[in-house]
């Protein structure tokens, strides 16, 4: 544990302020320990993937960053601000969030869903334009999709709307919880590509991402660094290349082998403009 904390600490020293920082975070649900002293920093503009098996604590860790989960111990900082004392409503309105099934409000049309955060922020500027821009960014024609109901969309389209909703207010931090997990292979590849392109386009805006996934290939495709969690503990946080060449533990090694992740995955990487590269 100490070793890992030092490792991530070492990375952060070489780079500017961490956008996100978790230090010794512990979370218990009744008798089970979901997070057992996790420390990790995410740098501004970086995309970190949280990977691990079911029950490894990756979603719990993600939800600490927008205060959907309150840690029992440890500290979580977002932009240097302690989440436990922050105005959580205000915090959440400035953090994008994309859940696995999109989490669209079924009784609102697509356009209204995308406007959600803008309206909550009482954002200045033209609501309709910003909404349509967000739809365009995720590859949906506003004229076609604006007035549709969520139930009229395919799974992929629904995830695109969810991403548009998360990005419409131009958050500097976006949390994604298995955003492509429930899609068929083709839609997933499409969306992964769109997402990577989007990050590239936004790179100037320094959008920081935390992506929860159980798919190592996806993590390698999209993330600058990958954090491997196991039973609420962090095994390793490193770039895909280091992970592959120097796995910190036998578990990481085993996980990579089981997922048949190889050097070929490094070549397929869609992200080359992240902060860490």
């Amino acid at each position: 544990m100490e070793k890992q904390a030092q490792r991530s600490g070492a990375v952060s020293q070489s780079l500017p302020v961490p956008a996100l920082s978790a230090t010794g975070v512990v979370k218990r649900f009744d008798s089970t320990v979901a997070l057992d002293g996790v420390s990790v920093d995410v740098l501004e503009g970086e995309c970190v993937a949280l990977v691990g098996e079911s029950g490894s604590g990756k979603t719990t860790l993600l939800r600490c960053f927008n205060a959907l989960v309150q840690p029992d111990a440890g500290r979580v900082l977002v932009d240097g601000m302690d989440v436990s004392t922050a105005d959580v409503i205000e915090l959440r309105r400035h953090v994008g969030y994309v859940p696995q099934d999109g989490g669209l409000l079924p009784h609102w049309r697509v356009g209204r869903n995308v406007e959600l955060v803008l309206r909550l922020q009482r954002a200045n500027g033209d609501l309709a334009t910003r909404r349509d821009d967000a739809l365009t960014i995720v590859g949906l024609d506003p004229g076609t999709f604006r007035d549709r109901w969520p139930r009229e969309l395919s799974g992929g389209q629904r995830q695109r709307v969810a991403i548009a909703r998360a990005l419409a207010a131009h958050p500097r931090l976006v949390l994604l919880d298995e955003p492509f997990g429930a899609l068929d292979a083709i839609s997933r590849a499409d969306l992964q590509e769109s997402f990577a392109a989007l990050r590239t386009a936004r790179a100037a805006g320094r959008m920081t991402c935390v992506l929860v996934t159980h798919d190592l290939h996806e993590a390698f495709l999209l993330a600058d660094r990958v954090a491997v969690l196991r039973r609420g503990r962090l095994e390793q946080v490193d770039t895909p290349a280091i992970l592959l060449t120097r796995p910190a533990t036998s578990y990481v090694n085993e996980l990579l082998a089981r997922a048949r992740v190889s050097a070929a995955d490094l070549d397929r990487r869609l992200v080359r403009h992240g902060a860490a590269t």
Partner: peptide, 27 residues
């Protein structure tokens, strides 16, 4: 009421009152 919609609404910064009025009651 649709738990994933409610969760998303909370995660994106709706207050409890907003969630009740705009999400849970309509659903």
């Amino acid at each position: 009421a649709d738990p994933s919609a409610v969760d998303a609404a909370r995660a994106l910064g709706m207050t409890d009152a907003q969630i009740l009025r705009q999400v849970r009651l309509p659903l």
